[in-house]
Design a protein around this nucleic acid. Structure first.
Length: 658
RNA sequence: GCCCCGAUAGCUCAGUGGUAGAGCAGCGCAUUCGUAAUGCGCAGGUCGUCGGUUCAAAUCCGACUCGGGGCUCCA
């Protein structure tokens, strides 16, 4: 059970953590690895001379990644035993587990193989064989890997820099930098979860590998807890809740295009109304613009090139007849015929139309900043494999707006936007927002000076709000840098919702200008910005965030009127009419069901308030009220009390008078 | 687009080659009930679509459609 296997060529110096801990008498059976200088080292890897270290025990959070990466090795070992000839590639620990990518020549993995593979893995774990590390030269590694036929590893080897190491457990060996657990016996709770295709190095042009996902924990108990939490998260899935609560529907004849059913449309409309109210207060002007434009527009905006694949064409029968006739005359000119005769495109974005509108008249600096908002419906052709529920669809609308402003106004506009968007997220109860600033890519337009100014405007705004942020170097659009705001869905998958992007390109392409104070023409800057982003996506993430229990101000119905018996139907109808007149959204259950059943149904719909009406309530002109959010009965309330309570919660938190 | 999985009643699901099932929802009748499911009855399906294998297909095979998981979190 020694660290460095004897006989290998060691490039490292210094003692291993195992040796250090042993000397100090601190090597307990629970030690998985150590931490030193912010890095995790396993017990096999020599530390720099004189390094400080702290012990990582099997139950420490930092041990998870080590355990999972080691489990990936055991998975690969098991797979290669069961399916000889399978080549290994990468197998990292990931956020909630690990994966390993294989190139299997003789078939595909399916979920049905998991049981067999897990059994083999348990066997390897039961053997409690030690992991061993060897530092080797590139030549030795190459010889070894070539001898094993591991062509992907050989390819990877040539890209590696720095020290090259092998890890072994039993007679299985892999090119790997670690870190790994001391022995396979540390891998006590393992589950394979799914199989998927994945391209070698993530590139579509490369061969597709078979990826097996799994997860591992220090104990079965923790694994079970994780799997249970996953189950719970699935219950919040907006696709499941959307169906159960009759919010949305889909039909094969409109793939990846949601129907918002009456209950869902109630919420959808309120999301938009909410934003619209903010626009009124924050100096935005809403416009309504065309759905279908001449192709020429998107040539000018650049979409016809870069965005071509994602755009729907709109053709009339006449267009197609003309195109057909033209093709019969000149069959070779397909591209040209399509350009000429299929003239219309369905808009994938609002910005080109807004540029047209901006340029409809001569603009003065006095009009800027001009904030143009549009809830126009957009269509984008998303490839079939990437669509998903409401979070990735082919038709949606954004709370989209374009701010045309001067370079000097850019900074304050970005800050004002961040103020606004954080108010919005607060109203919805989102606190876990990830902020990413995407900076200049290699191929870009505009001078470095202008980019400097735009990037620093974004950074300043984020810093002014004291927000934590990450920089995504080179990930900005070719026309300008941007801030992205990401939120997570129930399963922890991140989605970009809000964004603000600086654009120097489109004003240029459309030759936009304004007359400045000195009577000279200047080019405005264009800011693309959205808070909810796609309303569809936001709706999906929101459903999951609140578990289908919309706050009173968004709920499709705010109060359910439930009768104890049909004897009080007259009073119930009176109450419903009164609440409706008071602007409250009500449904009534006057059926012959028992009260218990009515309550159950209304609760399953997650209605904020239940108003029970019986003879007592009819006599007292009130209702016996139950509140979903406080999860308790409020007892008897007069109708006025009920109305003022629901009305108070019926407006967004940031707008409530205090 | 590519890899794997799935599709049976409005919903959730059972049914592995031999006469299509359950619960819930719906409809009808009875019940008039006090805080998470009242009882009885009725109705409801070209088993996603098309093709193939077979005496016989929801079931086996193939294609297609739609949906789900995934496709750098780089040894």
């Amino acid at each position: 059970m020694s660290g460095n296997a004897s006989g290998s060529v060691s490039v490292s110096t210094g003692r291993t953590p195992r040796e250090i801990l042993q000397a100090q008498g601190k090597l307990t059976p629970n030690v998985v690895a150590v931490q030193s200088g912010g890095k995790i080292y396993d017990l096999h890897t020599p530390l720099p001379e004189g390094a400080e270290l702290s012990v990582i025990n099997v139950n420490d959070p930092q041990a998870l990644a080590v355990i999972r990466h080691s489990t990936a090795h055991v998975l690969a070992d098991a797979v290669q035993r069961l399916y000889p000839g399978t080549k290994v590639t990468f197998g990292p620990a990931i956020e909630n587990g690990f994966y390993y990518d294989f190139d299997r020549k003789d078939g595909q993995f399916t979920d049905a193989d998991f049981e067999k593979i897990e059994a083999k893995m348990r066997e390897i774990v039961a053997g409690d064989v030690p992991f061993r590390r060897e530092a080797v030269t590139r030549d030795d590694a190459r010889k070894l890997l070539q001898g094993m036929g591991e062509s992907y590893k050989v390819e990877h080897l040539e890209r590696l820099q720095g020290e090259i190491s092998l890890y072994r457990h039993g007679d299985w060996v892999d090119l790997c930098e670690g870190p790994h657990v001391p022995s396979t016996g540390f891998l006590r709770a393992v589950k394979l979860t799914s199989v998927a295709g994945a391209y070698w190095r993530g590139d579509e042009r490369n061969p597709m590998l078979q990826r097996i996902y799994g997860t591992a924990f220090p104990s079965q108990k923790e694994l079970d807890a994780y799997l249970h939490a996953l189950e719970e998260a699935r219950k919040r899935d907006h696709r499941k809740l959307g169906k159960e609560l009759e919010l949305i529907g889909f039909h094969p004849w409109a793939p990846a295009s949601p129907f918002f059913l009456p209950r869902g449309a109630q919420v959808y409309r309120r999301l938009i109304d909410y934003v619209r109210d903010l626009y009124d207060r924050f100096g935005y002007q809403e416009v309504v613009t065309p759905q279908i434009y001449d192709h020429e527009l998107f040539v000018k905006s650049g979409h016809a090139g870069a965005y071509r694949e994602a755009m729907f064409k709109a053709a009339t029968v006449e267009d197609i007849e003309r195109a057909t006739a033209a093709l019969q005359k000149a069959p070779a000119d397909i591209e040209k015929v399509i350009e000429e005769h299929l003239r219309f495109d369905v808009k994938p974005m609002n910005c080109p139309g807004h540029c047209l509108m901006y340029a409809m008249t001569r603009r003065s600096y006095r009009e800027l900043p001009m904030r143009i908002a549009d809830f126009g419906r957009l269509h984008r052709f998303e490839r079939s494999g990437v669509t998903q529920g409401l979070t990735r669809v082919r038709t949606f609308c954004q709370d989209d707006a374009h701010i045309f402003c001067t370079l000097d106004q850019m900074q304050s506009e970005i800050i004002a936007f961040l103020e606004l968007v954080y108010t919005v997220y607060q109203d919805f109860g989102f606190t876990d927002v990830r902020v990413v600033i995407a900076t200049r890519p290699d191929t870009r337009m505009g001078s470095d000076e202008v980019w400097d100014r735009a990037e620093s405007a974004l950074k300043t705004a984020v810093e002014r709000k004291a927000l934590q942020f990450e920089i995504a170097e080179g990930e900005g659009a070719f026309y300008g840098p941007k801030i992205e705001l990401h939120l997570k869905d129930a399963l922890g998958r991140p989605w970009q919702l809000g964004t603000i992007q600086v654009d120097f390109n489109m004003p240029e392409s459309f030759d936009l200008g304004y007359v400045a104070e000195d009577n000279s023409m200047h080019r405005p800057v264009m800011l693309h910005r959205a808070m909810l982003g796609s309303v569809e996506r936001f709706f999906g993430v929101l459903v999951e965030h609140v578990g289908g229990a919309f706050p009173t101000w968004l709920a499709p119905e705010q109060v359910a009127v439930l009768t104890v018996s049909e004897k009080v139907n007259d009073y119930a109808n009176e109450v419903v009419a009164l609440l409706r007149r008071s602007g409250i959204r009500v449904i009534a259950d006057l059926s012959s069901d028992k009260l218990g059943a009515k309550i159950r149904n209304a609760r399953n719909l997650r209605l904020p308030y239940l108003a029970v009406l019986g003879q007592k309530e009819a006599d007292g002109r009130g209702a016996s009220v139950r509140c979903r959010d406080e999860n308790k009965e409020l007892g008897f309330l007069t109708l006025d009390e009920l109305i003022s309570r629901v009305r108070g919660e019926g407006i967004p938190p940031s707008l409530r008078s205090s």
